[in-house]
Computed example of a mutant assay.
Amino acid sequence: MKQNELVSIIVPVYNAEQYLEHCFQSIADQTYTNLDVVVVDDGSTDRSAELCDEWAKRDPRFHVTHQSNQGVGAARNKGLVCAEGKYIAWVDSDDWIESDWIEQLYARIERYHADMVSISRGFRKHPEQDVLLKYKAIIKNDNEFARELWSTFTRREIFRGLIFQNFQIGEDACFLTQARAECNKVVLCYQKGYHYRVNDNSLVHSFQLQSMYSWVDSLEYREEIVRKEHPEYVKYMHWTLAIDAATIIRFCRGHHQEKGVPELEWRVRKIIARHIFRIRYSMLTSKAIHDTLAALKCLLLG
């Protein structure tokens, strides 16, 4: 395969010393070698900063920037400023990728002359088949896209003018909703090769009230930004907003008596109620309909 185009891989790092060697080695071992690895150390207090600098000495494709701790959103924004590649990929510092991950995504974006390649959630009847979505079909199929930033491979120009907001949870979905609205062509594909490490102490796998409130803030921001900037797409967002809100309700189970939780659940149920009765069920697969009914149960029963 020709490797004419530089690909930037942005890796935000914060206190990930036990995972960095595996993560960085998997990037260094990519079969697509024309890489610009943008590592942003977000004020780590362990040995992460030292390990990042060591890798910059070992591999000239690794470029490290250090900043005071400002959060993963700020680290990603810094990464976008520093990135020089035609295309942008993302890897979290505690995860790792198969050796052909970048090659496979690069091949697709070049083959279809697309703005973005996005991993499918697998709801379609034949999820293993690539689907090229154009214009309105991109937002119309929003429920098909994975929510995480690592699931995308994008032309850098698409991100011009976009910034990550400072949410503890949900900032990926907010950013990608805005980014996809700027795309003319998106390839929806089913590609294995990214290994997401489950950390039971992470914000998305443990109940922390402040994080839950931040998650609700991100949903309301996502709803507001679509209404303001892309009102024609609102009718296609009802499903994803209702389902994501129902996920928060499920996290609250077992914590109903804790201070602040009833108020949180009330805000979340208002989001579900605004959207669940406006969903176009003819657009949904059987799996998506099942998830919708589960969200309705969260609204009615908690």
Score class of each variant (00 low, 15 high):
residue 192 K to Y: 08
residue 238 H to P: 02
residue 55 W to Y: 04
residue 198 V to L: 09
residue 81 V to T: 14
residue 85 G to Y: 05
residue 246 A to E: 01
residue 15 N to A: 07
residue 207 F to W: 13
residue 193 G to V: 06
residue 199 N to E: 06
residue 94 D to W: 12
residue 278 R to F: 14
residue 83 A to C: 03
residue 18 Q to E: 13
residue 76 R to Y: 10
residue 297 K to T: 00
residue 80 L to N: 07
residue 161 G to E: 11
residue 168 Q to V: 13
residue 160 R to A: 15
residue 59 D to F: 00
residue 194 Y to A: 03
residue 100 D to F: 12
residue 74 A to H: 08
residue 52 C to M: 02
residue 115 D to I: 00
residue 159 F to R: 08
residue 51 L to F: 15
residue 107 A to C: 11
residue 117 V to L: 04
residue 217 D to Y: 13
residue 202 S to N: 07
residue 197 R to Y: 06
residue 228 K to Q: 07
residue 296 L to G: 09
residue 287 K to A: 03
residue 294 A to M: 12
residue 30 Q to L: 11
residue 239 W to A: 01
residue 227 R to Q: 10
residue 283 M to K: 03
residue 56 A to D: 05
residue 227 R to H: 04
residue 58 R to P: 08
residue 234 V to M: 09
residue 135 Y to I: 06
residue 101 W to A: 05
residue 272 I to W: 00
residue 12 P to T: 12
residue 297 K to A: 00
residue 138 I to R: 13
residue 263 E to I: 03
residue 150 W to A: 07
residue 40 V to K: 05
residue 26 S to A: 09
residue 276 I to T: 01
residue 187 V to A: 09
residue 252 C to I: 06
residue 227 R to N: 08
residue 209 L to H: 05
residue 106 Y to A: 06
residue 9 I to R: 07
residue 248 I to A: 00
residue 1 M to E: 03
residue 84 E to M: 14
residue 222 R to D: 10
residue 100 D to A: 11
residue 294 A to Y: 07
residue 44 S to C: 14
residue 145 F to L: 11
residue 259 K to F: 02
residue 65 T to N: 08
